[in-house]
Design a binder for these strands. Structure first.
Length: 803
RNA sequence: GCCCAGGUGGCGGAAUUGGUAGACGCGCUGGAUUCAAAAUCCAGUUCUGGCUAACAGAGUGCGGGUUCAAUUCCCGCCCUGGGCACCA
């Protein structure tokens, strides 16, 4: 026999599997279909790191388990290959993104092949391939046709020195990553998708087997609220000012109005402001801050008085109007009414500007005094005071009453608001799918006809930053200049590319149809194979990617392109693998490659070690200290399979084997791979003492198949089986065989364990109590007082309460 | 700041319709084997006291509470991680 030659055996089976097409899926047979998907990787210069393995290994184990349960499993893989890092690399080194991406992809394909997963490479997609992004552009056109795409001005991070747009990542701490200049905001005309139109549909998770926390995060992200838009007259100005509030009940306490620096209201009325220079300077400064900074509670509030006043019709009070950066233009109407007695940020602002603070809600402490402490602001329950006809009502009733009142008077209108913003897809970058729009002087904005797709990304691009603020594609004359599809006259192409989230919002629809050239996908095929049965990926995608993918799927459904509304039936998030407590990234220099471990221990050991680290959904900090434990286990497993077949206790073997089947089955169902490995270790420890027979060996080998597929395949062959083990039937257990006749239970006195007894599983309470009482150590305690209660939880615990 | 998770031995973790906390593995200690080492095998291993015992006390981030009994349920904190819309 000898030691287990992991590398040799793994390469042998990978070759066989490839040659026999074991992992190719017949998509015409959808009867027992199972679409098992992982979020596809970005082909970065770091290649695959241990985090990918942590994710992909168990995902493949799951797919293998489902295949052994008789499902026709489709497990595709691909690359999300457009994006910023390849472009930055090009700017630095001059290497074309197409080249560096192709290199990274081919290296990663090699790494993934060594894993031995069941990927059907015939169906692979690479989003930067012409044959893929052609259809990303097609998806854009569908959304455009449906009037879900539109253009408007929106701010970008702008480096005044480099004269270029920066990603958030390049603008951390408000300075440019390259030159350290202070980052400013600049408005550009950009494309958006109306994801807000789908806010209600996206809030409906009722048919989704998703983690509760993910649903909660999406719900909070969408942020539905019911409130009222109130219009106030502004003294000396013809236009009214409109504010959105969810707490109109507090409006008798309104003492000022605040408008966002970038709001329409500021733009429209700037000529009427008192100190125009001060306000212009303030707006400029606000542009340098991030939203998170601006809205943080506890931060010192700043602002400039406009000289204008809004009139509160409830109180006839003149409310001064301020410009302040703690209000954001894209939230609600970009204007808020200041109620410092009931909102903590308004409270902070009022203190700063010495504005009137009125108590209108009495909270649980019953305090009605005029002076309000910060902790009394923002009461979630309470009743109204100082609010005329609302006085005495609880805040919820008052909210309804005042909204009725305001609507009757014509001062306001009930509205539903969402925090969700429309999806900004324009990117002023090269390495992305061009937006298929043409601008013609005569015809205006014209979508590229579907038959003219793809709009091909040009190669004649110089990556060095031009410093003229234009998108890279602007500089390709051959790309930019074109003929109008409608009138044939001279026209210019849109030079922005699409957000890469656009590529990943539909790739799962392309996999089953990846080779089609005349259409993005076939409705019949997709209606059979989708939704995805299991989708595995990181929780960091809870709000963005997963909402975008749902939105695109819903929109395509509503246009009749596909017959299902939701893309992902079941969702599981793997945990994140960190290194020294931090997310692995090139900038931190803490990326750990799986290659040396695969080389040294083999794919199976490495995969099982990652599983054994802890629960799949938890992740953890990477270290390689325990990997020898798994290597030892594999050696022992190997020697048991190859060892003699002699058993000292047959009944015990059967019982433990059936217990093992139960545990592994349940653990895999719950994705608790760590305890599945532990259970196998316990079983091996047991059979090393007790011995094993051939049928038990076979079951044991089947049970390890999802976790260590190469090892299992080799053992399966050694045990004389002909078929591939992944096509053997998952073992079942007999519940009757795993019942323990005798169990050890603890004996408690006043809740503390004082002894242990062994009882028969159907022993009666009297019997058990009597046995417990007879223990010398228990007698000692029983003599100390009077027994007031005897407790017996069958099979679990026996206890006495004494006084 | 806001939203969502998580905190258990020297380390990774196990155990939750409340019922013997620490399975499994790493590491460590002792032993066997060996000229020696590696590898392997056997035994021990939460901490404190105690005779390497019986047993007792403490113990699941911190402070309270409910209960015969709390890692598990409730209230209030602290810390760490993820996300916050141009990294993907």
């Amino acid at each position: 026999m000898g030691n287990y030659q992991a590398r040799k055996i793994e390469q042998k089976w990978q070759k066989v599997w490839k040659a026999t097409g074991l992992h190719k899926v017949d998509l015409s047979d959808s009867g027992k279909k199972y679409y098992s998907l992982v979020m596809f990787p970005y082909p970065s210069g770091d290649k695959l790191h241990v985090g990918h393995w942590y994710n992909f290994g168990p995902a493949d184990s799951w797919a293998r388990y489902m295949r052994m349960r008789g499902r026709n499993v489709f497990e595709p893989m691909g690359f999300d290959s457009f994006g910023l890092p390849a472009e930055n690399y090009a700017i630095k080194t001059g290497v074309h993104p197409r080249e560096s991406t192709a290199k990274n992809v081919s290296y990663m394909v090699g790494q993934l092949s060594e894993m031995g997963a069941m990927y059907d490479w015939d169906k692979a997609v690479t989003t930067s391939d012409l044959s893929y992004y052609k259809w990303t552009q097609w998806v854009f056109l569908q959304l455009y046709k449906r009037e879900l795409a539109y253009k408007k001005n929106a701010p970008v991070n702008w480096c005044p020195s480099c004269q270029t747009v920066l990603a958030n990542e390049q603008a951390q701490d408000g300075t440019c990553e390259r030159c350290k200049s202070e980052v400013e905001h600049k408005d550009l005309s950009q494309w958006f998708f109306k994801i807000r139109d789908y806010a209600e549909s996206l809030l409906d998770h009722s048919d989704l087997d998703w983690p509760e926390k993910t649903k909660a995060m999406q719900k909070n992200w969408i942020g539905k609220s019911m409130g009222i838009d109130i219009s106030y007259d502004v003294e000396g100005v013809s236009d009214k000012i409109s504010v959105y509030t969810t707490r109109p009940d507090t409006n008798f306490g309104a003492t000022f109005v605040v408008v966002a620096p970038e709001s329409e209201c500021v733009k429209k009325n700037s000529d009427k402001f008192e100190d125009k220079d001060a306000i212009a300077a303030y707006i400029h400064e606000a542009g340098k801050k991030t939203d998170i900074e601006r809205i943080a509670e506890g931060r010192k509030k700043t602002g400039v008085f406009t000289g204008l006043h809004a009139l509160n019709p409830l109180t006839d009070k003149k409310m001064p109007i301020y410009v302040s950066d703690f209000v954001l233009a894209h939230v609600g109407t970009g204007c808020v009414v200041g109620v410092p007695g009931s909102d903590i940020r308004d409270f902070e602002f009022a203190r700063e500007k010495e504005l009137e603070i009125i108590r209108v809600v009495v909270g649980s402490d019953g305090d009605e005094s005029e002076i309000i402490k910060p902790e009394q602001v923002q009461e979630e329950e309470g009743k109204m005071i100082n609010s005329e006809f609302l006085d005495g009502m609880d805040i919820h009733k008052a909210t309804e009453a005042i909204m009725d009142h305001m609507e009757e008077k014509g001062w306001g209108k009930r509205v539903t608001n969402y925090k969700l913003r429309d999806w900004l897809i324009s990117r002023q970058r090269y390495w992305g799918a061009p937006i298929p729009i043409v601008y013609c002087e005569k015809c205006g904005e014209v979508p590229v006809p579907e038959e003219d797709l793809p709009v091909e990304l040009p190669m004649d691009i110089e990556f060095k930053l031009k410093g003229d603020g234009k998108s890279p594609l602007y500089h390709s004359e051959s790309f930019r200049n074109c003929k109008c599809p409608t009138c044939g006259g001279d026209a210019e192409r849109e030079v922005d590319t699409m957000d890469t989230f656009m590529c990943s919002s539909w790739y799962f629809l392309r996999y089953p149809c990846s080779k089609m050239t005349d259409k993005p996908f076939d409705k019949d095929v997709l209606d059979k194979w989708l939704p995805v049965d299991m989708y595995i990926g990181g929780p960091e995608h809870a709000c963005m990617h997963l909402l975008y993918a749902r939105f695109v799927t819903m929109a395509l459904h509503d246009m009749g392109h596909i017959g299902f509304k939701e893309p992902f039936k079941r969702l599981v998030h793997q945990g994140m693998v960190t290194k020294d407590g931090a997310k692995m990234s090139k900038s931190k220099g803490n990326v750990v490659s799986p290659d040396e471990f695969v080389e040294k221990y083999g794919s199976d050991v490495f995969r099982m070690y990652l599983m054994f680290m802890g629960p799949f959904t938890d992740g953890g900090d990477w270290n390689d200290k325990g990997i020898t434990g798994i290597a030892r286990f594999v050696e022992r497993f190997w020697s048991v399979v190859n060892g003699e077949e002699k058993v000292s206790d047959n009944n015990l073997l059967t019982k433990n084997l059936h217990k093992l089947i139960k545990r592994i089955t349940e653990d895999i169902e719950k994705m608790h791979f760590n305890t599945a490995v532990a259970a196998l270790m316990e079983f091996i420890n047991f059979v090393m003492k007790n011995g094993i027979d051939k049928p038990a060996k076979k079951v044991m080998v089947q049970l390890i198949e999802p976790l260590a597929p190469h090892l299992a395949e080799e053992c399966w062959e050694i045990l004389g089986e002909k078929c591939n083990i992944v096509d053997s039937e998952w073992p079942s257990f007999d519940a009757k065989l795993i019942i323990d006749d005798r169990v050890k239970i603890g004996v408690q006195v006043n809740g503390k364990i004082r002894g242990e007894i062994e009882i028969s599983k159907d022993a009666k309470q009297d019997e058990v109590v009597k046995m417990a009482q007879e223990l010398p150590n228990i007698q000692k305690y029983l003599l100390e007082g009077k027994v007031v209660k005897e407790i017996y939880v069958p099979g679990k615990i026996v206890g006495f309460v004494i006084k």
